[in-house]
């Protein structure tokens, strides 16, 4: 067992990483909005893939913030585990609700 709050955590995400992630977040947001119907990146052919695309891009931003800003990449698996567990239960419930109402009610 170690003392908590022992060494300062300067080895985690420093200014350079923060800036790079910020850039990535900006680019992804621009792509996301660009794909919105009526905006530059949108085409009719893309429409069926639009929902998965939006979800994927959003998930990408989610992962970046969680990994680098929330330090999950640098921390003990304990924290990622706790969060992932909540996410797993949460996502299953949302998906089940939507499925049930889409097909069974």
């Amino acid at each position: 067992m170690s003392q908590p709050n022992g060494t300062p955590e300067v080895h985690k995400a420093g200014p350079k990483t923060c800036a790079l992630v910020a850039l990535a977040l900006t680019v992804i947001t621009l792509v996301e909005v660009g794909l919105f119907p009526g905006y530059p990146l949108y085409t009719e052919a893309l429409r069926p893939a639009l929902i998965p695309l939006f979800l994927l891009l959003g998930a990408g931003k989610f992962a970046l913030v969680a990994a680098f800003y929330m330090h999950l990449k640098y921390d003990k698996p304990l924290f990622g585990g706790i969060f992932a567990f909540g996410m797993a239960v949460g996502i299953s419930i949302v998906v089940s609700l939507i499925t049930l109402f889409l097909y069974y009610h």
Partner: peptide, 18 residues
């Protein structure tokens, strides 16, 4: 326990698959 909840709702009309 998180996957059984609608057994309280068998009579609301979810249909046979649900």
């Amino acid at each position: 326990g998180f996957g059984v909840w609608a057994h309280h709702m068998f009579t609301v009309g979810m249909g046979p698959v649900g």
